[in-house]
Amino acid sequence: MKALPSLQAMWNEYGGKGLNMFLLESQGTEEDKLKTFLAEKGVTAPVFMGGLASYPGDNGLPFAYVIGVDGKVVFEGRGNYEAVIKTELAKIKYPGLGKIEIAKGLEGAAANFVARQYAKAIADCNKVLDKSKDDAAKADAQFIIDRCNAEAERLKARADKFAEEKHYVEAIAALETIAAGFKGMEVATAAADKVKEWKKDKEIKKELDAQVALNKLVEATKNARTKAEKAKPLRDFAKKYEGTRAAMDASVLADKAEAG
């Protein structure tokens, strides 16, 4: 698809800053072939297999839907939707918060939420809850506190999911976000303790070292000219780090490189 580079550029610029992107491969391409195709094109924007029954398009591809900040569909069809996206993005003051307008006096709390300074955001909100007589401000303060707590839960779930897969680099990153963002709170201490515990564990340390080494290898072989140039270092890596999750990942990448 011709638009992939511009979609990737949009993702690089606005992903995590208010734009959520769901690219749905709707021709039933096999997963391995799809992953290889995307890797070759350098696509990291979120791609999913299959379609969505509630967003059927018109039987022709490509087809796009843009949902605006008010939750309504603001574009459907083909053509230039980039301008529509930019117009909607300009309306967002606090990406990720889930609210466009916030009561006066809570702008700092909302900004702290966006900066992932959750403990500061909660402290700002508690002041409003204690002192303000404005019901709307109190409701917004409670809304921000709830959003902070939901973020802690989401990050914990993310850490658990990655740890289950033995992808400890990502799992630790999620816990470190909790530890830094909720500094001084119980949830932060628990996250920091978990990271310390993991880093002391010999098996986990082995997994971590292997994963870091694999990430470096993937980066180093990114521009390999032939299939063999790309696959061989990955096969060697899989032997060297046998028994780790990273070795399994390396073998899968080698298979793809050879099939590519």
């Binding site: 734009l19 690219l23 749905l24 490509p62 996206i85």
Partner: peptide, 13 residues
């Protein structure tokens, strides 16, 4: 994705 922008793009390889 409340109060954010969403792009859903149907496409094919």
């Amino acid at each position: 994705c409340k109060a954010e922008v969403v792009l859903i793009k149907l496409w094919g390889v």
